[in-house]
Design a protein around this nucleic acid. Structure first.
Lengths: 203, 203
DNA sequence: ATACAGTTTAACCAAATGGTCAACAAAGAT
DNA sequence: ATCTTTGTTGACCATTTGGTTAAACTGTAT
């Protein structure tokens, strides 16, 4: 029986670490849980990653990169504002549907260790929002949309895309939605959210 | 020197527990930290609250009640839809500005312990959203607003009010805002968000 | 076969952590 | 003054937890 590429010890560890860290966060995760989840010994875990910190850093860097890369890619593309908004909402909600734990994980750790986050994970991301702001200012000058501070529009857009994933458990309790209804709800939002935004800003 | 009412051991403990739990969450909080913060012995902490669980439950119940009560109060009031939206956004953002840790704390713990949350903290909150949905359907029938599923409108509104508090650290890094600029930003949102919503749905 | 490198394990360790206990102090009640 | 209840403390305990070590196993080149 040949070891497939996905089945190396290294990959089993990363998969297990991802699951445990995403679900429980740095403080709540236990090295023993990760080892169990990977089906290996705890000592072997330390053989591959010397400490919990090191392993966490790998998982967190991977996660925050996933969380921001998509945003950056779409926002820096050269398409008209409305198309950009549609593309952003659609693709970002799609990506988060694939990784529903991502927002809470990244935002929670960024809140709990802001200094560390800034030091290690905030390189070359400075001007992400600047580009979007310029697009908006341009369309305001062209009288295509009503005057509105770019920061608010951007915050509104990201809020409506990301928040449902964070509020999911409470939302499902209060709305009584079932799992598949929630999936459908998210699917709808790919269209509903950009429509909602454009309806609001279009002149 | 008479002990003022706010300075009882009980209150010092609650204040300390609030601070530590809100900042670090259940998993990250240490009983020793809470005792230190309260300026008392760890044994005394256990004298008042037998276990970390018990103490956490008090703080969490208090927090989740704060988080939902305001919503309920406004949404169940008998005012017109647009006024209700304005009132909700303004008052909810104001309340969260006073308690900026609240959203992440409540949503994070609800995510990490969904079953426990449902069991212990979800009593008599079922029909909170139903009321708002009826208001919206009514206005759609009256042709006052464009057709839109109430669930999406509600989710959008809550998202735009709550999300900025969760994203604060990342937002401040990426936008370069300073603390007082952020406070001003939130202040603006009390008007901007309801305006944004009403612009979008008004016929 | 054997030597050798990388991999895996059981057993172990020290620090951290939630929790307890017996003694002691404070404050009323008698 | 003395008794009793309540509040407070330092020392202590058991378990959990991140991390280490030495031995054993595996595959491979000689």
């Amino acid at each position: 029986m040949v070891k497939s590429l996905d089945d190396t010890t290294e990959n089993k560890i990363l998969g297990a670490a991802r699951k445990v860290f995403w679900e429980k966060g740095m403080a709540g995760a236990r090295m023993q849980d990760i080892a169990d989840q990977a089906g290996i010994n705890k000592a072997l875990l330390h053989y591959y990653y010397r400490s919990k910190e090191k392993l966490f850093e790998v998982i967190f860097r991977e996660a925050s990169s996933l969380f921001f890369m998509k945003i950056a890619g779409i926002i820096e593309s050269d398409i008209p504002l409305f198309a950009k908004i549609e593309s952003f909402c659609g693709e970002y909600i799609a990506m988060l549907s694939q990784n529903p734990y991502l927002p809470l994980f990244v935002l929670n750790e960024a809140n709990k260790q802001p200094y560390r986050f800034k030091q290690r994970f905030w390189k070359n991301r400075e001007n992400l929002f600047e580009r979007f702001a310029r697009d908006i200012m341009m369309e305001i000058e062209n009288k295509k949309i009503r005057p509105l501070k770019p920061a608010h529009l951007f915050m509104n857009m990201v809020s409506m895309c990301v928040f449902p994933f964070i509020a999911k458990p409470i939302w499902m309790m209060s709305s009584g939605m079932k799992e598949d209804e929630f999936i459908h709800f998210l699917e709808e939002r790919k269209k509903i959210v950009p429509e909602f935004i454009i309806c609001s800003i279009k002149k």
